[in-house]
């Protein structure tokens, strides 16, 4: 088959015409639908549908929740709400731990600064004061210079490597 014939047969692809028609139809439909969903009428209709669905399902949902809560109580198992309340308390504890971690980082940075023989700047005094007040600040706000952070990292690496050696 010659090149010319190949080109001719490609041009004769009936699916190409179908695809062209399909794409033109989809483009027109897309524009119409974008305009339709951007109307107050659409907003009102979807709002009413949602409202209706919630109203219809609410009694079933409440009945199911009550029955499930009773069953769980009979089985001495915690309800979903109780588990959620417990999870909230865990999050609060995590927050407090994170606060303590921040404070420890700053104390470590100050101590490392002393160890490395770096003069403690005004920032460290501020940091000590804020630590005493229990305020949570970022290390930057505590005035710790980059060198001090590097010292902390060096010290941590030393501790880690010592730990690994012990293992």
């Amino acid at each position: 088959m010659s090149d010319g014939q190949e080109k001719g047969s490609k041009a004769f692809d009936p699916m190409e015409t179908f695809r062209g028609m399909r794409d033109a139809y989809l483009d027109a439909m897309a524009k119409t639908m974008v305009e339709a969903v951007n109307t107050e009428a659409y907003a009102q209709a979807t709002g009413a549908m949602l409202e209706g669905t919630l109203a219809v399902t609410a009694p079933f949902r409440e009945a199911m929740e009550k029955s499930l809560a009773n069953t769980l109580q009979q089985l001495s198992l915690p309800s979903r709400q109780e588990v959620a309340a417990l999870a909230e308390r865990f999050t609060n504890i995590e927050m407090r731990l994170d606060d303590m971690d921040a404070k420890l980082d700053r104390i470590e940075a100050i101590l490392c600064g002393e160890e490395e023989g770096e003069p403690l700047g005004e920032g460290s005094e501020d940091a000590a004061a804020s630590l005493a007040e229990g305020a949570v600040q970022s290390p930057a706000a505590a005035g710790g210079p980059q060198a001090r952070r590097k010292a902390v990292r060096r010290r941590r690496m030393r501790q880690r490597s010592a730990g690994n050696t012990r293992k």
């Binding site: 659409y42 907003a43 709002g47 009413a48």
Partner: peptide
Amino acid sequence: LTFAKWVDERYFDVDKVLEA
């Protein structure tokens, strides 16, 4: 803003949805 129309207080009760 199409979203702003959909969540207009006349049509969308956010509290009811979140209560559910």
